[in-house]
């Protein structure tokens, strides 16, 4: 067993884990943050995507001990004080989910997409950039719409904050 300390959704956490524990197991089993899902064994489906130091990663392909000292945000940490993140809101508004299983990973990937590729995302860009996430229910049609709308909403939400900071 070994100790790992990190910040998850703004809270400092320490856990004693078997070295073979994956980040997703630490989240789901130790911290009971079950919003992050496992949908495959080969790092392809993206149901397990979380943000590690601000970047989307597959938590099923990351050892818990490798993220000692890091900051992790999961789907549970996206809404702030009960206010939904614009991307969460967009998925609901545009029916970007059905069974909900891929959804946490999709939303985390979408937020990461916006941070890398900006607030104005066309359909081709979104489809191209979504190749690390598989959905079996929606045919992606509404996910694409949701991400475009969520990206734009994040831009609008971010503008006043940025101005205030300047």
């Amino acid at each position: 067993m070994a100790t790992v300390s990190l910040t998850v959704n703004g809270k400092a956490v320490t856990a004693n884990v078997d070295p073979r524990t994956l980040l997703v197991q630490l989240l789901r089993e130790n911290l009971r943050l079950t919003g992050t899902h496992v949908g495959c064994d080969t790092s392809q489906c993206g149901a397990c995507v979380v943000h590690l130091d601000g970047k989307a990663v597959k938590s099923c392909t990351t050892l818990a001990l490798s993220v000692d000292g890091a900051t992790v945000t999961t789907i549970e940490g996206l809404a702030v004080n009960g206010v939904l993140h614009p991307m969460q809101e967009a998925f609901r508004e545009h029916h970007g989910l059905q069974c909900g299983y891929c959804t946490p990973g999709m939303i985390m990937a979408a937020v990461d997409m916006v941070s890398r590729r900006g607030h104005s995302l066309d359909e081709a860009t979104i489809r191209d950039d979504l190749d690390g996430n598989i959905c079996r229910c929606t045919g992606y049609h509404n996910i694409v719409k949701a991400i475009a709308a969520g990206a734009e909403a994040m831009g609008k939400a971010a503008t006043p904050t940025r101005k205030a900071a300047e």
Partner: peptide
């Protein structure tokens, strides 16, 4: 109508068997 069930899914509060 926007879906009533979505809130739990988009906030990671769904409850699947493995949960």
């Amino acid at each position: 109508v926007r879906r009533k069930e979505d809130h739990r899914f988009i906030t990671g509060q769904g409850r699947y068997t493995d949960d």
